[in-house]
């Protein structure tokens, strides 16, 4: 299936929009090809919040750092009696604003963008990364787009989408996830190997 860069850009923008905030009735109608979006609005807003906003069972973290970054705490000098046997001190994952967040922020800036402060969220949010790829395609910078997919989006988006598909709470967004998967597959964005290859990690010394 051939898509021209600006067409690709459009699709990235759409998905970026869907993950940025819950869709309004107009958009719901367009996507679902129906006219009763108004009735669905609240239901989808609650689904959106439970998936991407509210901490809890159903939350699917929409951040690259959460999936990719790891942290090692060097406790060679720690003598705390509180360290339990079997305490895992290396490769801790699942936190926000890791090195990936700083790296994508840098990539945006190098390409002339920054996160609008009115977007009250982090730079490695899925909506930012998708929009950024779209922006690059829109400007005909296919190489840069592919490089960003390779270095960032591609490392985690499949993990994110798989999680999303699994969520019971996910109805509207399950469909969105599936569509995004089938769109991104030919883009080569779903290989997700970089994660195993060891994403970014850093070592924090526990000693002073």
């Amino acid at each position: 299936m051939f898509l021209r860069p600006e067409e690709k850009a459009g699709i990235y923008f759409l998905f970026s929009r869907l993950f940025r905030e819950a869709p309004d009735p107009g958009l719901i109608n367009e996507i679902l090809e129906r006219t009763d979006g108004t009735g669905k609005e609240e239901e989808i807003a609650v689904e959106y919040a439970s998936l991407f906003v509210v901490p809890g069972e159903c939350r699917v973290s929409p951040y690259e750092s959460f999936y990719c970054d790891s942290l090692t705490v060097d406790t060679s000098t720690a003598d705390s009696p509180y360290f339990q046997a079997g305490c895992r001190l290396g490769g801790m994952k699942g936190f926000l604003y890791g090195v990936s967040a700083a790296a994508v922020e840098k990539a945006y800036r190098e390409n002339g963008f920054e996160v609008d402060p009115r977007f009250y969220d982090l730079p490695d949010h899925i909506a930012c990364e998708l929009e950024f790829v779209g922006r690059l395609y829109e400007r005909g910078r296919d190489e840069a787009a592919r490089a960003f997919i390779h270095r960032h989006l591609g490392r985690w988006v499949s993990l994110f989408l798989t999680e999303l598909e699994k969520q019971k709470r996910s109805i509207f967004y399950k469909r969105a996830a599936r569509k995004l998967i089938s769109f991104l597959t030919p883009e080569g964005a779903l290989e997700g190997k970089a994660v195993e290859k060891g994403g970014m990690s850093e070592c924090v010394p526990a000693k002073r």
């Binding site: 002339g112 920054e114 996160v115 922006r135």
Partner: peptide, 10 residues
């Protein structure tokens, strides 16, 4: 339909 964007020129 999409409203605004999340990135802006630097």
């Amino acid at each position: 339909a999409l409203g605004g964007r999340v990135l802006r020129p630097v």
